[in-house]
Design a protein around this nucleic acid. Structure first.
Lengths: 172, 172
DNA sequence: CACAATTCAGTTGTGCACAATCAAATGGCG
DNA sequence: CGCCATTTGATTGTGCACAACTGAATTGTG
């Protein structure tokens, strides 16, 4: 414990191109790792808050989409949340088993499955209203800071997604 | 796709305390979600880069610790990475099966298991040296931006961890 | 119409995250 | 010594993430 801080910061002043690759290895761990850790820390707080709603964090994300947009096909849910059917199918079954959503095949296109809210699922929204404020206060960040962080993270995600596509071996 | 931007930004100007809780719900999705998405996007890029090393991202994190600190007990690994034995035990077994690490019970304290590098595991470090630079370039961020982001994320993680402890029902 | 390509959800398999529980080893105390 | 709390890793169970594959339905093309 108590190993916060930059392990590379003590060795060199890190001018671009001047640091040996050794230092990058150490700094790197801090970059990717801090994001990883922040994501899990967020998950931990949500876990506590959402337990009283009977939701996991990804299930909460699905409910947010349904509360905002109403009935939605699985495909669209996946686009909103960037999740594929391998993740969504079992997750939606659990939400259905919990009585929060309905799943039924579209009559127009038999390939599509429409996901909608049950009365219970729609009612849960009221109890979820306090969650965002409590999360906000848990971060200790101001609204402006959160916005700024959000902008940076979105930029990061866009860049990383693009890089992953270029880098993928069978894709050039 | 193309739903980047703040869904709440069009409705109100979001002065603290002035926005109705409805808007918080929507803004919230963007905050937690952008972090979640960034984390998975990072994971995606690492997945591509690390495939040629035969490592997953969490396995790479373990190797980073071992390359930096040498032989380490499981307990210490967990503290460095904030992971418990339920995650580490099977992960380490896979690394052992891949011939990259050794696991052996300490002779001093039979409860402790020391994890060390094999020759192959130590040699892998050379091939991993280029990873951080490639990740850096994938983000498109400057060193300064990365540092700044790192600082914010660490602050966020610390605040969230503290909040989770306070919020935990059986802990007050 | 027939047939190939595409779209969409589901299934399977692997791996990570974490809570809960267990068992063995250790160390302290009477 | 005998007993008990603590430490430490392992195990089990649930749920998410994602790749690869399956199969049904739809669409495009000749």
């Amino acid at each position: 414990m108590a190993d916060r801080g930059y392990p590379g910061a003590m060795t060199t002043e890190l001018q671009p191109g001047a640091a040996p690759e050794e230092d990058w290895l150490r700094l790197d761990r801090q970059i990717c790792f801090s994001l990883h850790a922040a994501s899990r820390a967020f998950n931990g707080v949500y876990r506590v808050l959402l337990k009283e709603l009977g939701l996991t964090y990804p299930q909460y994300l699905v409910m947010l989409v349904l509360w905002e947009h109403g009935e939605t096909p699985v495909k669209k849910l996946g686009e909103h949340l960037r999740l594929d059917s391998g993740t969504l199918s079992p997750l939606l079954k659990r939400l259905e088993a919990a009585g929060l959503v309905r799943r039924e095949r579209s009559t127009r296109d038999e390939r599509s499955v429409q996901v909608g809210l049950t009365g219970e699922g729609a009612a849960l929204r009221e109890r979820a209203l306090s969650v965002p404020r409590r999360i906000m206060s848990a971060t200790g960040f101001s609204l402006e800071e959160i916005r700024d962080l959000h902008t940076r993270l979105d930029r990061l995600t866009t860049a990383l997604d693009a890089a992953a596509l270029e880098e993928t071996p069978g894709c050039r």
